[in-house]
C-alpha cells in the first residue's frame, strides 16, 4: 500500500472533501487577489479564528441531528438560553464578590459553564424525547421547542441584552492560550472528540446506520430510539457550548443573537457533504466548509458588501451547492 493509493482511498471515501478543499483554495485565491492588502493580514485571520468556532460548533450540532435524517432548528434557541441562564446566574443568583480570590472566581465561572452545558443537555433531551417518544417529526419538534427556548429567553431578559459576565467568562470567547485563540482550541477539541465518536465508536456507527435505513436499523436490533435521543442530547450540549462562546466573546446574551446562524449552519452542513436525509456526513467536511464560508464572508465584508447581500450570497451558495451535489449524484 503506497501513499498514492492511500490518498485516493481517502478521497474516494468522501470525494466531497476534495471538492471542498478546492472551493476553499479558490475563495482564498480570489479574495487575496481582490483585496491583497486587507485580506492577507495576520489580523484578519486572527479575527476569523475568534469568530468561526461558534458557527462551526453549531454546524456540528446540526450535523449530528442530520445524520439520523433529522434536523435541529432549536440550536440557536438553546445557545441563547444557555448564555442567558448563565448571565442570570452570574448577575442575580451569584453576583461577583470583590473579596473572592482568583480561585473563587474560576469556581464561579466553572459553575456557570456547568449550568449552561446542563441547560443544553436538558434541552436536547427534551428534543430527543419528543422525537423518539412522542414521535414528532424533528422539523416540527425542534421548531416548537426552538420557539419555547427563545420565548423563555424573552421572559428571562424582557428584551434587552444581559450584560455583566465575569472576566474569566470572557476569556472563553476572547482569550488566547499560547498565542492561539481559545475558541479555536475549543473548536479543534470538540471536532476531534466528535470525529472519534462518530467514526470509532458503536454510537457513531449506529447513527449512520439509522440514518441510512431506519427500518433496517430497527430490524437489525439497534436501539434506534436511545441512539437518536443521545444524538439530540449531544447536539443540545454543543449548542449550549456555542452559546457560552458567543456570550463570552460579546460579553452579553440576548434572545435574538445569532439568528442568522441557523441558515448558515444548515448551509455549512450541506456544503460539508452532510446528507440532510441522513446517513452521511463528516466532521472534517463541516470544518472545511465553515472555514471556506468564513473566508468568503470576511472577503465580502472587506469589499463593503452590505450584510443583506451577504445573506443573499449564503442563500444562493446553498442552492448552488445543492444543485452541484444533485448533478454529481446523477453522474
Amino acid at each position: 500500500m503506497n501513499k498514492q493509493f492511500d490518498l485516493s482511498r481517502v478521497i474516494n471515501r468522501d470525494n466531497n472533501i476534495l471538492q471542498l478543499i478546492l472551493i476553499t483554495v479558490v475563495i482564498f485565491a480570489v479574495m487575496s487577489w481582490l483585496e491583497p492588502t486587507k485580506f492577507l493580514r495576520y489580523y484578519n485571520f486572527e479575527s476569523i479564528s475568534f469568530i468561526f468556532p461558534e458557527l462551526g460548533i453549531v454546524a456540528i450540532a446540526m450535523m449530528l441531528a442530520m445524520l439520523t435524517g433529522g434536523i435541529d432548528l432549536s440550536v440557536i434557541g438553546i445557545a441563547n438560553l444557555a448564555g442567558i441562564l448563565a448571565g442570570v446566574f452570574f448577575t442575580k443568583l451569584l453576583p461577583g464578590d470583590p473579596a473572592a480570590g482568583m480561585a473563587g472566581e474560576i469556581a464561579r465561572v466553572a459553575a456557570g459553564v456547568m449550568l449552561a452545558l446542563g441547560v443544553g443537555l436538558v434541552a436536547g433531551a427534551l428534543n430527543g424525547l419528543l422525537i423518539t417518544r412522542a414521535k414528532i417529526t424533528p422539523i416540527l419538534a425542534t421548531l416548537g421547542t426552538g420557539q419555547v427556548f427563545t420565548g423563555l429567553c424573552m421572559v428571562l431578559t424582557g428584551g434587552p441584552a444581559i450584560v455583566g459576565f465575569p472576566a474569566y467568562w470572557g476569556l472563553i470567547g476572547n482569550g488566547k492560550l499560547f498565542g492561539i485563540a481559545v475558541p479555536l482550541l475549543i473548536f479543534v477539541a470538540v471536532a476531534m472528540v466528535i470525529a472519534v465518536l462518530l467514526t470509532r465508536t458503536s454510537f457513531g456507527l449506529n447513527l449512520f446506520l439509522i440514518g441510512t435505513n431506519p427500518r433496517a436499523a430497527v430490524f437489525a436490533g439497534l436501539k434506534s430510539d436511545r441512539m437518536v435521543l443521545y444524538s439530540y442530547m449531544l447536539s443540545g450540549t454543543l449548542a449550549a457550548l456555542a452559546g457560552i462562546m458567543l456570550s463570552g466573546r460579546t460579553n452579553a446574551a440576548k434572545s435574538d443573537y445569532g439568528t442568522s446562524y441557523l441558515l448558515q449552519a444548515v448551509l455549512i452542513c450541506v456544503l460539508g457533504g452532510t446528507n440532510p436525509a441522513g446517513g452521511r456526513g463528516t466532521v472534517l467536511g463541516v470544518s472545511i466548509a465553515v472555514i471556506a464560508l468564513m473566508l468568503l464572508a470576511s472577503g465580502f465584508q472587506m469589499m463593503r458588501f452590505s450584510n443583506h447581500l451577504i445573506d443573499f450570497i449564503w442563500g444562493g451558495f446553498l442552492l448552488l451547492v445543492m444543485v452541484l451535489n444533485a448533478f454529481r449524484n446523477r453522474a
Binding site: 447581500l309 445573506d311 450570497i313 444562493g316
Partner: peptide
C-alpha cells in the same frame, strides 16, 4: 424548479430561497 429538477429537500430549498429574496430586497 429547484425542488423538482434537482430533487432537493423542500425545507432546505425554501430556507435558501428565503435568504436570497430577503437579501436581495434589503440589500439592493
Amino acid at each position: 424548479f429547484f425542488i423538482h429538477t434537482f430533487r432537493m429537500i423542500p425545507l432546505i430549498v425554501t430556507l435558501g430561497s428565503a435568504s436570497v429574496v430577503r437579501g436581495l430586497l434589503l440589500g439592493l
